[in-house]
Structure formats: C-alpha cells, structure tokens
C-alpha cells in the first residue's frame, strides 16, 4: 500500500441528483482514501445505486462535484474531464463490478478475451503476453487455467463474479465500485467471493465502494459505512461502531431487523 499521500483518493461534495420531480439522492459528501473500503447500505430506493452512479461518473449530478486524485497526483474534477479521459480512467484506474455479470462481461467472448480486453484497450499487442497475464489473473480469482477459452455463459454465478473481478483487476486499479457483488449467490459462494475481495483489498491496496443491502457483507468487508435513507446520508462512521452501536432510529431498526435472522 502506498501511504505516502494522505490526501483522499476521491472527494465528493454536495452531490444531488433529481430524476424530474423525484429525488435520487441529496447533498451527499464523502471522502474515500487509498486502501479503504466504504460500504453504502440502505433499503431499496434509498439512493445507494444513484450515489454509486454519480461517484463513478455514469450519471451526471444535478448539483455537487466529485474530485479524484489521478495516478500522477493531480486532483481533477471528474465532471470536467473529457469523455476520452473519463473512459480511460474507467478502464485503467477504476473497476466496476455489477450485480448482473452480464453487464460487466462480454458473454460471447472467452474468459481470456474478457480479462485481456482492458490490456488490449491500453495498447497491449502481444498475444502470448496478454494470455499469460489473463491466466495469472484467472488463477488469482480461483478459476482453473483450462477454462480460459470457455465463454462466461458456461460459468456458474460465482465464477462469473470472480471473472468480473479479474477483468477489472488486470490493470491494477486503485478504486473499484461494486453494486451488490454478492447478490443472488448462495451463502458459501458469497463467503468465497468476500474472501477474495478482502484479500485483494489487502494485497493491492485497493479502495472500494460497495453498495449492498446486506449488513453482513458490509461488516465483513468495509472499514467505514454510510447509511442512506430517502436519498440522504443519515449516519456514517466506522463499520463496527455503526453496526454495534447505531445512533439513528432507522439504523437501529435496520440492524435489529437483520440480526434477528
């Protein structure tokens, strides 16, 4: 982990998004530091995914700004970047793991091609080296090397999510966005995936924003937690603190309702 720079990696200030008369999220401010995992929790419709879309520049905010510290150390306003620069950022220094693997993977392209796409997009033109790199990443996400030429539509749900992660990690991003990465997976597969994400965060100093409605996922993975309701952040803090000793009545309700199970 490179701890030389104490400035946050990403700074969001006063982010708001309106969908016509409806509120997506309002006045959200958030810092993310290098190597830090932030979980965004809340019920359906609380604005979690809108916030993720804004932070990752896939949505344009109605108000507010997002600044990001580039690899060269310069802080840039993300919404002032040109589209080419933004795309480059998205496929090199960032990753995005979708709940539905179909959105993050090319289902008609082999696993190796999926992992190699970012490399080829950034100028790799040596087939042997692209393939060797893809093999290494498949191994790191515990997909057998001999599946490299198989298409992801022959993979199980858990494998698809791991392939998505490999596809994103291949350019060594510093920040990864995850939208319900464990959604729809059974508990043992979830556990393996969480384990993997945790080890990557530790090994590569990866920062992550994870949107989830599953408090167990948030507790396992995240250092800090952001609780959202009706488009607003109602409580933030260290994960253990918030989950063990929630201040807001809504958070108390949320924690209580989960722990009953």
């Amino acid at each position: 982990m490179s701890a030389q720079d104490d400035r946050p990696l990403l700074v969001a200030e006063g982010l708001s998004k309106h969908y016509g008369p409806h509120l997506g999220c309002a006045d959200v401010s958030l810092d993310i530091h290098e190597g830090e995992v932030v979980a965004v929790v809340g019920e359906s419709g609380s604005g979690k995914s809108t916030l993720l879309g804004l932070l990752s520049t896939q949505l344009l905010p109605s108000a507010g700004s997002v600044r990001y510290r580039m690899r060269d150390g310069e802080e840039r306003d993300l919404f002032a970047l040109g589209e080419a620069e933004r795309r480059f950022l998205l496929r090199t220094d960032w990753g995005f793991v979708h709940q539905d693997a179909r959105l993050g993977l090319r289902m008609g392209v082999s696993a190796g091609g999926n992992v190699g796409e970012r490399l080829m997009a950034t100028g790799w033109r040596h087939y042997g080296r692209i393939r060797a790199e893809a093999e290494q990443w498949l191994e790191r996400v515990e997909i057998a090397r001999d599946r490299i030429d198989d298409r992801p539509d022959t993979f199980s749900g858990g494998m698809r999510q791991r392939l998505q992660i490999a596809k994103n990690m291949v350019t060594r991003p510093r920040l990864i966005f995850m939208d319900e990465p464990t959604g729809g997976l059974d508990v043992s597969v979830q556990a393996r995936l969480l384990d993997l994400i945790r080890s990557f965060v530790g090994d590569y100093g990866l920062a992550a924003v994870i949107v989830t409605h599953d408090l167990a996922v948030a507790r396992l993975l995240s250092h800090r937690i952001v609780v959202m309701r009706h488009g607003r952040v109602i409580e933030t803090g260290l994960t253990d603190q918030v989950l063990d000793d929630p201040r807001e009545p809504y958070t108390q309700l949320l924690v209580a309702s989960i722990l009953q199970a």
């Binding site: 496929r91 392209v109 082999s110 091609g113 190699g116 796409e117 970012r118 080829m120 997009a121 950034t122």
Partner: peptide, 9 residues
Amino acid sequence: GLMQVKLYE
C-alpha cells in the same frame, strides 16, 4: 480495444 479482442478470440 474491442477490435483486438476479436482477433484474440
């Protein structure tokens, strides 16, 4: 990058 993916495949 996509075009190169086709040749890779």
